[in-house]
Design a protein around this nucleic acid. Structure first.
Length: 899
RNA sequence: GGGCGAUUAGUUCAGUUGGCUAGAACGCCUGGUUUACACCCAGGAGAUCAUAGGUUCGAGUCCUAUAUCGCCCACCA
C-alpha cells in the first residue's frame, strides 16, 4: 500500500484520478487560479530585465479562428518561457475598434430591425455601436482566456479608449504641424457599398476575367474615326481628352486635333503624353481624369476638365446624360448596347486584369476623385528603412526584410480619412464663413473645438465629418497602450513606458505587414524615437488540409473553441505548434489534434504512475544534486538526456523554432522517459534513488513543457505537491556536469540489443510471455562492463531469463541470431525455432547489408574521394566498410550454420 | 510584368553551416490484458527527396533552367 506522509500532497486522491486527463474539468479552474494569484501582472522591476509583447489587437467583430489560436499560442509560449527564465514579462492585450467592419456589422443588425443609420443620425448610431461593443466586443478576449493566454488583463486597451484617442489626436496634430498631413482632391479607392475612401492597402487586387472594349471615336470634321480600348467603357462618359504617345508615328497627325465623344457628343482634344504605351490596345487612350489615377495625372499636366459622372453609391449622376440613375455596371451594359446600335463598338476581347475590391465587403472599388486627408509617407519611411537596414529590428524569417524594404522604398501617401461614423473623428474644424471665400481659409487643427475662428472671429465652426482610418490608431498601439502621450498626472505610466518600450517581439501574420507592422515602425521612430519592437516574428497562414486558406465564407474553418471542447486547450496548442515551422503555412485537419491530446494523456498517466508508486515525501527530500557515483547507467542516461533536451529547447525557442522545441520535448518525454526509463525503473521502483530520479525528471519536464501545455502541467504540478505555481518555479537549470556522452552511448547500445531481441520475437512469432535465454557475443568491453544492468534490462524489457556475455565463440545450434555493429545476439530456440522463418530473416538482413556495403565500397574505390574528402570523413567511411564486411561475414556464417 | 514561397513515405510535415544508412506524426500490416496510459505497448512495411542540367570527392541541402501549386506587389487603359 501507499505511504502517505506528505503534508503537501494527498496522494490517495491521485489514486482515484481517472485514467484519462480531463481538460474540461481542469482548464477553467486552473485559469482562475492563475488570475486570482495575479500571475499575469507585469510591474516595473529593478531586479529583472523586461520582456514585453503587445498583442495584435483583434477586431471587436472577430471571433477566435485558428490564425488567432496560432498567433496567441506563440505569444503565450514566449511570455511564459521568458517569465520562467526570470524576465519581468508584459503581454499587453486589447482590441481594435475596426471602423468599417464594425460599422457594417451594426448597420446589418439595424437593418434587420428595419432601421437605417441615417434615420438614427450620427450620435444615436454611435451609441448603438458602443452598445454593441459592450455586448459582443469582448467575445474574442474571453476566447483568448480559454486558450490559456497569460495577458495582463488589468491593462486591457481598446483603440477607442480615452487614452488611445488622445494619442490619435496628438499624432494628427504633430504631423499636421510638421506638414506631413495634407488635404486635397485626388483619385482614391472608393467603395460604393461602404461609401467611403480606402487606402491603397485596403483595396485588394484580384485577377478577374474581364473584357477589353474597342470603341470608335469619330474624328472631328472627317468620316474617319480612331479607336480606343478600355476595360470600363462607362467611364467614357467622363472623358475629357484622348491621348497618344508623342513618339507614335501612326498618330502624329492627330495630335492637337479633336475627336467627338460618342453618345455625349462632346469635342475632345487629342493630346500627347509619355504615359501612353503605344503597344497596348490601339495605342490611343481615352482620358478620364475623374475616374482613373493615370488619367488624373494626365489631366493635371494638360489642364483637362475633371468630369465626375458618379454618385458616391456607384450610380451615375446627371453628367451621364441618358444613363443617369443607373448603377455603374448596369450602365456599362446599356452603354454597350447603344454603341453597338451606332456601330461604334469595334470589337470586344477577353482581358485578364487585376480589379480592386474592398477588403471589408469585397465590392469592386472605384477609382474616384474626392477630397481626402493624406499622410506624406516618404519622410516617415526613411528612418524606418534605416532602422531595419542597420539591424535595429529583425524579421524572422529574414525574407520579409526584403518585402518590407521594397514596400518602404516605394511608399505612397496614405489616405487616412474615411466617410464613416465609427472611429476617431478628424480633429479639424472649419470656419464656415472663411470656407465660403476659399478652401484654404479657416481650417483649424486642434484638440478641442475652437470657440471662434482665429481669422474672422466667426463662431460658426464645424468639425470635419470624417473619421480616421482604423490603422491610424493601430499604428500607435505599441506606445499608446503604454500611456503615450504623457503628462504629469500620469508619470507612473511614463516609467512603465521607459521600462517596457521598445517591446521585445511582435508576433503576427504576413497579411498585415504593410497595414500594420511597417506603419508601427514608422510611428515608433517618429513619436518615440525608437523602434517599437526588436524582433518581428511572422508566422504562416492557417490553411485547411487541402491548402485553402480557412475562411468563414468557404466554410472550411475549424473552430478552435470546438477543438478545445473536444481535445483540450493544451492539445490544440501543442498540435498546432508542433507543425509550425518558421514562417511556413500551417495545414490543419481535425485529426492533428489527436496527437496533442494523446500526448497530454501520456503525461497525465505517467504522472499518475509516479504518484501511485512514489513515497509521499519524495518531492521534499532532495536538493537536486546527485552524486554521480551512486547512479546507475539508466539514471545517468536519462539525466544526461534531460539536460541535453533542456539546452536544445532553449536554443530552439531563442531562434523561434517552436516546432522543434515541441518535438524535442515530445521525443524526450514519451520515447525516452516513458518508453525506456520508466519501464526500466519499474524493476527498482522501491528504491529511493529511483524514485528521486523518476520524480526529478518528471518535475523538470513539466516545467519545460509548461509554456506549451500550461493547463495540464500546472494541474499535475499541484497534484505532486508543489507549492508555488509552476509559472513561478523557473526553468530547470542545465547541469552541465550531468551531460554524460559515454553513458548515453552505452545506453543506446543496450537499447539496440533489446530492440533486436524484440525483433526476433516478433518476426518469429514468439510470444512475449515465453521466457528465453540469450547469448551476446562481443569484443566490446562496454557491453561486458554493464553485464549486470543488461541482465536486469533484458529481463524486464524483453523477458530474457538467462543472459550470458562471452567473447566470440562458436555459434550455438538452433538459435535465432541478430548481428549488430558491435555484437552478435543468439537466442537458442530448440524446439521453438522455425528454420525457414529464421532463414528468411537472415536473408533479408543479408541483402540489406550487401547493398549498404556496395555503396560504401563504391565511394571508397573513388580515388578523388580518398584524396579530396576530409580525412575524418574518409576514416569514417573506411570504418563503416570494415564493419559492414564483418557483419556480412557473420550473417553469412549464421546462414551457413542454419542450413 | 516583377518578387517570394512550396514541391521529400498513402497523407500532413521536419531536415540547421553540403557527409544521410533521409526522420516524425497520422494511416497501413503483424502481434499484445507486461506493476500509468488501447488517447496504450512491441515489431514491421512504405521515399529513384517534382524534372533536366551544372558545381563538387560527395547534393534532399548550393547554382541554372523547366513544370505544377500557392502567396505578395505593380497605374499599362
Amino acid at each position: 500500500m501507499l505511504t502517505v506522509n506528505c503534508p503537501h500532497a494527498d496522494y490517495t486522491i491521485m489514486k482515484e484520478l481517472s485514467k484519462q486527463y480531463n481538460p474540461k474539468e481542469t482548464e477553467g479552474r486552473i485559469y482562475k487560479f492563475w488570475e486570482d494569484k495575479g500571475l499575469f501582472s507585469a510591474e516595473v522591476s529593478q531586479e529583472k530585465k523586461p520582456y514585453s509583447i503587445v498583442i495584435p489587437p483583434p477586431n471587436i467583430t472577430g471571433i477566435l479562428h485558428m490564425g488567432h489560436a496560432l498567433n496567441n499560442t506563440i505569444q503565450d509560449i514566449l511570455i511564459r518561457y521568458k517569465k520562467m527564465q526570470g524576465y519581468e514579462t508584459l503581454w499587453m492585450p486589447g482590441t481594435d475598434h475596426a471602423g468599417i467592419a464594425t460599422q457594417n456589422v451594426v448597420e446589418r443588425k439595424l437593418s434587420k430591425e428595419g432601421k437605417k443609420r441615417h434615420d438614427l443620425g450620427r450620435e444615436k448610431f454611435i451609441d448603438e455601436v458602443w452598445k454593441w461593443q459592450k455586448e459582443y466586443g469582448g467575445t474574442i478576449i474571453k476566447q483568448l482566456r480559454r486558450l490559456g493566454s497569460s495577458c495582463d488583463w488589468r491593462r486591457e486597451r481598446f483603440t477607442m479608449d480615452e487614452g488611445l484617442s488622445k494619442a490619435v489626436v496628438e499624432v494628427f496634430i504633430q504631423l499636421y504641424k510638421k506638414g506631413l498631413i495634407y488635404r486635397g482632391n485626388y483619385i482614391i479607392n472608393w467603395c460604393p457599398r461602404c461609401q467611403t475612401a480606402l487606402s491603397d492597402e485596403e483595396a485588394e487586387h484580384r485577377e478577374l476575367d474581364g473584357h477589353l472594349y474597342y470603341i470608335k471615336y469619330p474624328i472631328k470634321g472627317s468620316k474617319e474615326h480612331i479607336t480606343v480600348a478600355t476595360t470600363r467603357p462607362e467611364t467614357m462618359l467622363g472623358d475629357t481628352a484622348v491621348a497618344v504617345n508623342p513618339k507614335d508615328k501612326r498618330y502624329k497627325s492627330l495630335i492637337g486635333g479633336a475627336v467627338i465623344l460618342p453618345v455625349i457628343n462632346k469635342e475632345l482634344k487629342v493630346i500627347a503624353d509619355d504615359l501612353v504605351d503605344p503597344k497596348f490596345g490601339t495605342g490611343i487612350v481615352k482620358v478620364t481624369p475623374a475616374h482613373d489615377p493615370n488619367d488624373f495625372l494626365m489631366g493635371k499636366k494638360h489642364n483637362l476638365e475633371e468630369v465626375n459622372i458618379m454618385r458616391p453609391d456607384g450610380v451615375l449622376n446627371e453628367m451621364a446624360g441618358e444613363f443617369e440613375g443607373m448603377d455603374r455596371f448596369e450602365a456599362r451594359e446599356a452603354l454597350l448596347e447603344v454603341l453597338k446600335e451606332k456601330k461604334l463598338l469595334e470589337k470586344v476581347e477577353p482581358h485578364k486584369h487585376a480589379v480592386g475590391h474592398c477588403y471589408r465587403c469585397h465590392t469592386v472599388v472605384e477609382p474616384y476623385l474626392s477630397k481626402q486627408w493624406f499622410v506624406k509617407m516618404k519622410p516617415l519611411a526613411e528612418p524606418a528603412i534605416k532602422a531595419v537596414e542597420k539591424g535595429k529590428l529583425k524579421f524572422y524569417p529574414d525574407r520579409w526584410t526584403k518585402v518590407y524594404l521594397e514596400w518602404m522604398n516605394n511608399i505612397r501617401d496614405w489616405c487616412i480619412s474615411r466617410q464613416i461614423w465609427w472611429g476617431h473623428r478628424i480633429p479639424v474644424y472649419y470656419c464656415q464663413k472663411c470656407q465660403e471665400q476659399g478652401e484654404d481659409k479657416g481650417v483649424i487643427v486642434a484638440v478641442d473645438k475652437p470657440g471662434e475662428c482665429p481669422d474672422c472671429s466667426s463662431t460658426n465652426m464645424v468639425q470635419d465629418p470624417d473619421v480616421l482610418d482604423t490603422w491610424f490608431s493601430s499604428w500607435l498601439w505599441p506606445f499608446s497602450t503604454l500611456g503615450w502621450p504623457f503628462n504629469k498626472a500620469t508619470d507612473r505610466s511614463k516609467e512603465e513606458f521607459e521600462y517596457f518600450y521598445p517591446t521585445s517581439c511582435l508576433v503576427t501574420a504576413q497579411e498585415i505587414i504593410f497595414f500594420w507592422v511597417a506603419r508601427m515602425i514608422m510611428a515608433g521612430l517618429e513619436f518615440c524615437g525608437d523602434v517599437p519592437f526588436e524582433d518581428v516574428y511572422i508566422h504562416g497562414t492557417v490553411r485547411d488540409d487541402t491548402g485553402t486558406k480557412m475562411s468563414k465564407s468557404l466554410g472550411n474553418v475549424i473552430d478552435p473553441i470546438e477543438i478545445i471542447d473536444e481535445f483540450g486547450a493544451d492539445a490544440l496548442r501543442f498540435s498546432i505548434i508542433s507543425i509550425t515551422a518558421v514562417g511556413q503555412d500551417v495545414f490543419l485537419s481535425r485529426q492533428r489534434f489527436e496527437m496533442g491530446r494523446n500526448f497530454a494523456n501520456k503525461i497525465w498517466n505517467v504522472s499518475r504512475f509516479l504518484l501511485i508508486n512514489l513515497k509521499g515525501d519524495v518531492n521534499k527530500s532532495l536538493c537536486g544534486f546527485f552524486a554521480k557515483g551512486t547512479l546507475s547507467l539508466h539514471d545517468r542516461w536519462i539525466l544526461s538526456s534531460l539536460y541535453r533536451t533542456i539546452g536544445a529547447v532553449e536554443k530552439a525557442i531563442t531562434s523561434y523554432k517552436f516546432n522543434e522545441a515541441a518535438n524535442l520535448l515530445y521525443e524526450f518525454i514519451w520515447h525516452k522517459y516513458c518508453d525506456w526509463y520508466v519501464e526500466i525503473a519499474k524493476s527498482s521502483i522501491d528504491k529511493m534513488g529511483t524514485q528521486l530520479i523518476l520524480f526529478k525528471v518528471l518535475e523538470k519536464s513539466l516545467r519545460m513543457l509548461h509554456p506549451f501545455m500550461p493547463f495540464i502541467t500546472e494541474e499535475i504540478w499541484q497534484k505532486i505537491g508543489m507549492e508555488e505555481p509552476i509559472m513561478q518555479s523557473g526553468l530547470p537549470h542545465i547541469q552541465k556536469q550531468m551531460i554524460d556522452e559515454k553513458s548515453e552511448k552505452s545506453m543506446e547500445r543496450i537499447i539496440e540489443i533489446i530492440v533486436a531481441i524484440r525483433n526476433i520475437r516478433a518476426e518469429m512469432n514468439i510470444p512475449h510471455k515465453l521466457e528465453l535465454d540469450a547469448i551476446i557475443s562481443t569484443k566490446e568491453k562496454d557491453v561486458k562492463k554493464y553485464e549486470s544492468e543488461l541482465k536486469v534490462y533484458t529481463k524486464r524489457l524483453s523477458n530474457i531469463k538467462e543472459l550470458t556475455i562471452e567473447k566470440l565463440k562458436k555459434r550455438p545450434k538452433l538459435s535465432a541470431s541478430s548481428v549488430l555493429d558491435f555484437c552478435e545476439i543468439f537466442i537458442p530456440l530448440e524446439g521453438v525455432i522455425d528454420i525457414n522463418v529464421e532463414m528468411e530473416r537472415l536473408q533479408k538482413r543479408l541483402k540489406e547489408h550487401e547493398s549498404l556495403l556496395f555503396s560504401v565500397a563504391k565511394k571508397l574505390s573513388n580515388k578523388d574521394f580518398i584524396q579530396r574528402a576530409p580525412k575524418d570523413i574518409v576514416e569514417k567511411e573506411k570504418g563503416r566498410e570494415e564493419m559492414l564486411k564483418d557483419k556480412l561475414t557473420r550473417i553469412k556464417a549464421n546462414i551457413k550454420s542454419l542450413a
